[in-house]
Design a protein around this nucleic acid. Structure first.
Lengths: 339, 339
DNA sequence: GCGTGCACCGGGAACGTTACCGGTAACCTT
DNA sequence: AAGGTTACCGGTAACGTTCCCGGTGCACGC
């Protein structure tokens, strides 16, 4: 191939400006020890020639790449999207750019090893640090700059930010109980995921605290998906003494409950109240009352933490808990016994 | 800084395997001229040492970086998200990874220059090619590998993929007319965006073809946002002879129509039918009948085109039109005059 | 026995940038 | 006025990889 299409490099700029390569580099990195008029001249030439620094060469030489890697399970989930919104906002405010990887289908067992692969790839060459959303792996090279958002495991060896799952779920349950509900169904998340487990525990604890004894038929095992949520809700609502409210481990499952109710000719909230978790945008359209865990905020904070890590500044807290907030909409109503 | 944290490089692998650096490189690039037992040995060492190739160095030396840049106006729009889903799927099937940039607020006038900057940055150093979603700029360096999805302008100098806006909007209008609607409102998109303009033209043409004379009060100027859609719908539905149906230039505007109707105590579709455009996921929950323009598919195809461009293979078509499809849901009903 | 071809491998020069070291001139300091 | 300090700049060696070129050993044919 002809070298015809070679882009202008620092050398060309140097020649055009009549200075050395070193000086151009100094200007580029805004060092102090360069006379202000040479700086002006070089800057002018750069602007005129339309020079943009070659990131590859720069990354190779200096350790700083100004790139943050993001590993996300599936870009299609509203959950991922919400987090990405926050990440994106933080990135825009920083000097970093974003490199995106997806691990693809979460259910495939290879997710964890995929993660490992991506992370090491990103870490030792192209990115300065990595954010992993819903990381499956518990351990990573401990001194690599890694931050996770909502990790699956319980106590990973890297910093992370997480919603207050237990608190939020408790709040939701207390709300339901306050409305008079006594038979409350629960659709779980995937069992291996910590946040879902904590919500389940909150459900159980709230029940016992209210003096209601558990009915195991009322907790149905879901997997955070709408389709499974729908199927489980169909079962729950077919019980001879069906629950007057269903608390779903996330909004997508809750949407499944809406679908199931509709199919059965039941009305939300008249025949069954529904509460979700996450507050994804769809929740608004359905009037779903849910627990907002500020996913975007979590992404935003994760970037901030990672940047500190990259700059070798100390982290205030290795784990950040984000308080949740119950947002009331129209999917719940008071219950005073079967009318 | 200590060189303590230096990652293992190709040289370390070479030493450990007892071969030269060149040979390791050959194995890495799966060249033919290497004995199969040496290959095995090198591969084993690589696996054992957990070596991952340094992307920066590789990119600098060889022109191929295996990275595709994506420039997207705002990651929060359902529109962008849909396209990204398709892009992501195509990326997963290819050997490329994805680098993501957002131009931020579209309304800011700097969008086009931002684009130029990103594209040149991506092009000459870090990425092999660039996909621009809803590109505002009409011209780019013509021999750079660039593909656009749904460009704003009418005839940019780079390849692009686009929905069949006119056809789709025509189909929607014919549907509405078939249902008996005669007073049909239209909420436009932003005027400078070609796809929106084509939908508007289809609206007008369908009306004249049906022998209905235009009422300018029925076309309200929107900007693709829900909020503006809501406001325009409020006005439209407050007309003394209000339209029996509203066709919105995109789904987000249509959602605004739903909100407006609700606020005014009107029911969709009983008091007013609504049709949108895009078929974003939210449309399903609202029961919005809309024109699916297969945004994800568009993203998918764009990646395929770009890959061909990068590989210097000829493109079948410089512009790809994706046929649309009307998806009927529950936001429309027949109309036989004010009851 | 010697050239020829083949299969495999190693050496070194790039790629574009930054870090380091050293050099020059002007300006203080005493 | 001589030495020291400062401000600025240039030369060059890396960074880790790929590409090009050439070299080795072996088999083969004449």
């Amino acid at each position: 191939m002809r070298p015809s299409r070679r882009s202008t490099g620092i050398a060309d700029v140097a020649k055009a400006a009549g200075v050395s390569i070193s000086t151009v580099s100094r200007v580029l990195n805004s060092r102090v020890d360069v006379a202000s008029d040479t700086q002006q001249r070089v800057l002018a030439v750069i602007d005129e020639m339309g020079y943009t620094s070659n990131l590859a060469a720069r990354s190779m030489r200096s350790r700083r790449k100004n790139l943050i890697g993001l590993v996300v399970p599936d870009i299609g989930f509203p959950y991922s999207i919400e987090i990405m919104k926050g990440i994106n906002r933080a990135i825009a405010e920083s000097t970093f750019d974003l490199l995106l990887y997806t691990t693809g289908d979460v259910k495939k067992s290879g997710a964890a090893s995929h993660e490992q692969h991506y992370v090491s790839l990103l870490n030792n060459s192209i990115a300065d640090g990595v954010i992993i959303v819903a990381s499956a792996a518990a351990d990573f090279d401990s001194d690599a700059p890694i931050v996770s958002v909502d990790p699956h495991g319980d106590n990973p060896n890297y910093p992370f930010v997480q919603g207050a799952n237990y608190q939020g779920a408790t709040e939701a349950m207390e709300y339901l109980l306050r409305l008079g509900h006594r038979r409350i169904g629960f659709i779980t998340g995937r069992p291996e995921i910590g946040s879902g487990a904590r919500r389940l525990k909150a459900y159980r604890d709230a029940l016992t605290k209210a003096g209601i004894n558990q009915d195991d038929r009322l907790v149905a095992s879901g997997d955070f998906s709408t389709e499974t949520g729908r199927r489980r809700a169909l079962e729950l609502l077919s019980l001879e003494d069906r629950p007057s409210a269903i608390f779903a481990a996330n909004d997508q499952s809750a949407i499944g409950v809406f679908q199931a109710a509709e199919e059965m000719g039941l009305r939300v909230p008249d025949d069954c109240s529904v509460v979700g978790f996450d507050n994804i945008p769809e929740a608004k359209y359905l009037g779903l009352t849910t627990v907002d865990q500020f996913l975007a905020e979590m992404g935003y904070i994760a970037v901030q933490m990672l940047v500190r890590l990259i700059d070798h500044e100390p982290l205030e807290d290795r784990v950040r808990k984000i308080p949740t907030e119950l947002v009331e909409r129209t999917s719940c109503r008071p219950w005073a016994g079967r009318s």
